[in-house]
Design a protein around this nucleic acid. Structure first.
Length: 473
RNA sequence: GCUCCCUUCGUCUAGAGGCCUAGGACAUGGCCCUCUCAAGGCCGUAACACGGGUUCGAAUCCCGUAGGGAGCGCCA
């Protein structure tokens, strides 16, 4: 009965970014660990900024990460609907209740008036809070304001004066806020829709959420929601405010600073295992070493080990997890992953062979594409060191190599035989034997094993490249 | 401006008064292994923001300072 229920409640106003993905992961992990439920709720009350395509994309991203939900807009659940835009009836009932009890009041102040008031307060060095213009109007005054108004009023929550609101944050510990620092805030917009503080808190209660893990940007807003829940007689969840995720420059994540969305990473070929493992360790510590499966991460997840300080996203660390994840892929999974990166014009068997041959050197699919091009099209451009090595090997070396290749026909496939023949003809061995051959064939002094690659060069290419190495340009 | 949160190697972090000569991972440098690179193994460089307290003893507690972040919206 005390089962943990967590939720992820994004607003569909853009692509899921890494910070969101991380709080989603933590919430999922917590529910998963305790055998609880994970709820997906879409906060689309702001019709202007919410888009249907984002709702779809968001769910795709979450599924891709492997964060499956037990209740959500697509699968329903006992406390639906899971789209806030469809829950207005319950909000309206609560609005009426609060207003009737005098805990909320209509406000006719225009955005312009409020903006002016805010600016002058800020200029005077005071906190920019609602001045209370409409707070204590009597019936006649309200009627007058209503008659004069050009737009419907908002509904404001009456924040009680002189109280202290405390709660025990799951990551930051005990918190204490004075209600005198909080201005009366809008809970229903002029167009009748519910504002974030309101519907977010109300839905958490209605959906039986027990633990809310969210960004630290919500920490100082929590007392408002606690006040609201108290006024409505609803239970409050435990809140845990996770430190924000920063860019590698220490500034907040932003597109400008090169922050990539989950979709960007996915399209670049990053593997979900890599992203999840990296996110797990950003702002969270664990004795767990190495790449872990989601269930193992869940078992190793502890609220106590969520950090209080903002963490920076680091490409190098993601890359390291990506490398581990790529190498851990099964043969079949690697094929699925890299097939789209193969150039056209290869038969399936060749594509598979190429993937198998290069995958140890592949971190991202683009690496596989690069190697495929080098093999199928042309070697990478020579650098000075490469040219020097070719010259050091000498014409006779490549004459012998080309002859050895020719002896195997247009499509040489026996690398040991080829190298043995060159060794026999020139006496070269070790690096002096293999480096020039590698550079002649690929243009680079490093790369995948050549033996499995040899049969994948285009017909005649091996001999041609060995001959070309006599006069590098 | 006011309120709140935060500050350990380049990065992610361990550390809850003596176990810290501050540990691990990524990155980085070197060596080994090796027909290249990678992988693997070994070794190294590198941090308690600053200043005051409290204490026999402080990375750990308290107070300031500096720096970073968030909130104070008819955005979520």
């Amino acid at each position: 009965m005390s089962a943990v229920v967590t939720r992820f409640a994004p607003s569909p106003s853009g692509a899921l970014h890494l910070g969101n993905a991380r709080t989603a992961l933590f919430s999922w992990l917590l529910a998963r660990r305790d055998g609880g439920r994970f709820v997906l709720r879409i906060e689309d009350t702001d019709a202007e900024r919410s888009q249907a395509e984002h709702i779809v994309a968001l769910q795709d991203d979450l599924r891709w990460l492997g964060l499956h939900w037990n209740e959500g807009p697509d699968i329903g659940g006992p406390n639906g609907p899971y789209l806030q835009s469809q829950r207005s009836a319950s909000y309206d009932a609560a609005f009426a209740d609060l207003e009737q009890r005098g805990l909320a009041y209509p406000c006719w102040c225009t955005p312009l008036e409020l903006d002016v008031a805010r600016r002058s307060q800020l200029a005077a060095g005071r906190p920019p809070r609602y001045a209370g213009t409409c707070r204590d109007l009597d019936a006649a005054q309200r009627a007058a304001r209503a008659a004069r108004a050009s737009a419907p009023p908002t509904l404001r929550f009456r924040v009680p004066a002189g109280r202290s609101i405390g709660f025990d944050d799951l990551v930051h510990g005990p918190q204490q806020f004075a209600t005198d620092d909080i201005g009366d805030f809008v809970i229903r917009r002029g167009d009748g829709t519910a504002a974030f503080f309101f519907c977010n808190a109300l839905d958490d209660a209605a959906m039986g959420i027990t633990h809310v893990l969210r960004g630290e940007d919500h920490l100082t807003n929590t007392p408002r929601q606690l006040l609201l829940l108290e006024a409505l007689g609803q239970p409050a969840p435990r809140y845990g405010h996770v430190a924000l995720l920063m860019g590698s420059d220490g500034a907040p994540l932003s597109k400008r600073a090169g922050a990539r969305s989950l979709g960007d990473l996915r399209r670049a070929g990053y593997l979900p295992e890599a992203v999840v493992n990296h996110l797990f360790r950003l702002g969270h510590s664990s004795p767990l070493q190495g790449l872990q499966l989601p269930d193992a991460l869940a078992r190793g997840f502890t609220l106590e080990h969520l950090g209080c300080a903002p963490a920076r996203f680091d490409d190098a660390q993601l890359a390291s997890w990506q490398k581990d994840a790529a190498h851990a892929l099964s043969e079949e999974a690697a094929l699925v992953w890299l097939l789209p990166a193969m150039p056209p014009g290869l038969d399936p068997a060749q594509r598979a062979a190429l993937i198998t041959a290069v995958r140890a050197n592949v971190v991202l699919p683009e690496d596989a594409t690069r190697w495929a091009r080098i093999v199928r099209e042309q070697p990478a451009p020579l650098d000075a060191a490469g040219r020097a090595l070719l010259e050091a090997a000498g014409d006779a070396f490549f004459d012998a190599a080309a002859a050895a290749a020719a002896s195997q026909g247009a499509q040489p496939a026996d690398w040991p035989a080829l190298t043995a023949a060159v060794r026999a003809a020139t006496g070269a061995k070790g690096p002096a034997l293999f480096k020039p051959l590698r550079i002649a064939l690929t243009g680079l002094d490093h790369g995948p094993e050549l033996a499995p690659l040899l049969p994948l060069f285009p017909p005649g290419a091996v001999q041609q490249r060995l001959l070309n190495a006599r006069h590098p340009d």
